[in-house]
Amino acid sequence: MNHIAKRHTRRRLLTGIAGGSLLPLVPLAAQAQLPPAARPPLLELVPVLKEITRGAPVREARVKLEIPHLAENGHLVPLTVTVDSPMTPADHVRTLYLLSEKNSRPVIAKIGFSPATGRATLTTRIRLSGAQYVVAVAQMSDGGFWAASADVVVTETACLDATDPT
């Protein structure tokens, strides 16, 4: 009897260790999507934003930025931006800026939408020089700014290539 009780305790202990060993995975998984607090404010991340907003506030909502968290190659990173807007003459997205934290030229693109586009969605492919944040900022017809950001890890190729024929 005593013997059986001991075994039960040991099993409980083993289960406890196994369960405990899973615990550190939880914060790791949470880290994979960096909490907003860990990211510097947008104006520090992409200083060029100051020239765009000229002091107007930027709210981080209404913009959805879809981009791979782990990009296979920095020469071509697909992305889709969607801005939540009715796209009517009275209320639409006027301009969408794609900004880069670390590229030599921080403005990747400036897109002009109009009510005729019906939906403020853009899919394109960008270049990223190294792991960094990408920021999408939309200016609405009322002048307000809305934004979203995403951090992208850009991986290097394993085999060097020096075959440029140019």
Binding site: V77, R105, A109, G112, A116, T117, T124
Partner: peptide, 17 residues
Amino acid sequence: FRAEMGSGIAANPYLQF
């Protein structure tokens, strides 16, 4: 629709809207 682009857009630019 109008797009102003630079070297941050990948070679052989592709746009979908």
